[in-house]
Amino acid sequence: MGKKDKQEEIFDAFCLENTVYFTRVPESYKNREIYKPLNEKALKAFIPGIIREMQVKVGDIVQKGDQLMILDAMKMNNVVRTLFSGKIIAVNVKEGDMVKKNQIIVEFE
């Protein structure tokens, strides 16, 4: 690649420690997942699977560590416990439903 070809390319501006560098920034970096702190109002499925047994309903008040449901995944019956205490305002899944990883299954007040 000669000098000429280089001038034709438009580079991304990439800032590190207060210095801007002109460089190629790969799509994988641009599209990386931006970190979000844990939302204490929504419990997500930690593994994909099928809901086998629902043990709570809307309006229930639960304590951190309480059992909410059984999630059948990876040939195991996984007990789903709540990470948060509080009143359940929505249960987004029912028995027999297939859930994806990180799908919001229970919402708290």
Partner: peptide
């Protein structure tokens, strides 16, 4: 490689 991600 300074061409990509400034070579970090």
């Amino acid at each position: 490689q300074p061409l990509v991600l400034a070579g970090v």
